[in-house]
């Protein structure tokens, strides 16, 4: 039997313009270790039926001692704006953590994390766990503009962070792939990337040239989050043929070798 999803909110902070960090009691006992960075929480923004579907928000930080989870999200429509109304003490309906997260491989020593925009939050828990298992962490994050930066200082606690912006208003002007130089990549045994599809496609191409294996966390519009609606599929090449994998259940994290972009 899956855990009942009603949990208490402990904190709801504004991190920047339209950017929020929501901390709530974990629906599962985190000490049992049954969660991975890169998994997501599927959250109802209200109990009414006007916003019907849950919002998939990636796990950003797990506080095992307090058994609390934090998600960081940007408001993108009326539904996520509704979510901003919830406050400490409120009870929210959370399913998860769901899906397949980022695997941490014993043989790796040096890891490279690549994030774009709202794809950055899951890298924080990932960086924490990679460091805890003794690996070095190098991070490249990209944003449209300085006002959209998030979690840069938090990520810097686990290793060097390179910031890229489209307009050059913070860090270096350019895309994340601009920062993925042969020199930087030669220092990585594996990469982990999360961001919008165009970024992931460019990262996949670049890192294949650099000959570094990695994982991609894909972004597709989700319905149920548990694999029954078949809404969030992404093309994968598997067992010698092209097929559609459910991002919510078989992903959102996939080995880059099987991910096919249009």
């Amino acid at each position: 039997m899956a855990p009942m999803p009603d949990v208490e909110v402990f904190a709801h902070e504004t991190l920047g313009k339209d950017l929020y960090a929501l901390t709530f009691a974990s629906p599962i006992d985190l000490r049992a270790g049954n969660y991975q960075p890169g998994q997501f929480l599927h959250i109802r923004v209200s109990q009414s039926f006007d916003f019907l579907l849950r919002r998939p928000l990636s796990l950003c930080y797990a506080d095992v001692d307090q058994n609390r989870l934090t998600v960081v999200y940007r408001t993108q429509g009326a539904g996520t704006r509704r979510l901003t109304a919830c406050k400490p003490g409120d009870v929210i309906d959370v399913l998860g953590p769901l899906g397949q997260g980022f695997p941490i491989r014993a043989q790796d020593h040096r890891t490279l994390l690549i994030g774009g925009g709202v794809g950055v939050p899951p890298l924080l828990e990932l960086a924490k766990q990679l460091r805890a298992s003794g690996k070095t962490v190098q991070t490249v994050v990209g944003f449209q503009t300085a006002g959209q930066l998030m979690l840069v200082e938090e990520l810097a606690a686990y290793g060097e962070v390179t910031v890229m912006t489209d307009d050059g208003s913070a860090g270096t002007r350019g895309l994340v792939t601009t920062a993925l130089t042969a020199e930087l990549c030669s220092l990585a045994d594996r990469y982990y990337a999360c961001g919008p599809s165009p970024m992931l496609k460019a990262v996949q191409q670049t890192m294949r040239v650099r000959n570094v294996p990695g994982y991609l966390s894909l972004e597709e519009r989700m319905g149920c989050g548990i694999g029954i609606c078949v809404g969030c599929v992404h093309a994968v090449y598997r067992d010698g043929q092209l097929t559609n994998a459910k991002t919510c259940r078989e992903g959102p994290v996939f080995d880059e070798r099987e991910v096919v972009f249009a």
């Binding site: 006007d50 519009r221 969030c232």
Partner: peptide, 16 residues
């Protein structure tokens, strides 16, 4: 059948 291109789902008022 592999089905249709994505996006395949979208929320609408009190429905999808």
């Amino acid at each position: 059948r592999l089905g249709n291109p994505t996006p395949r789902v979208a929320e609408t008022a009190a429905g999808m």
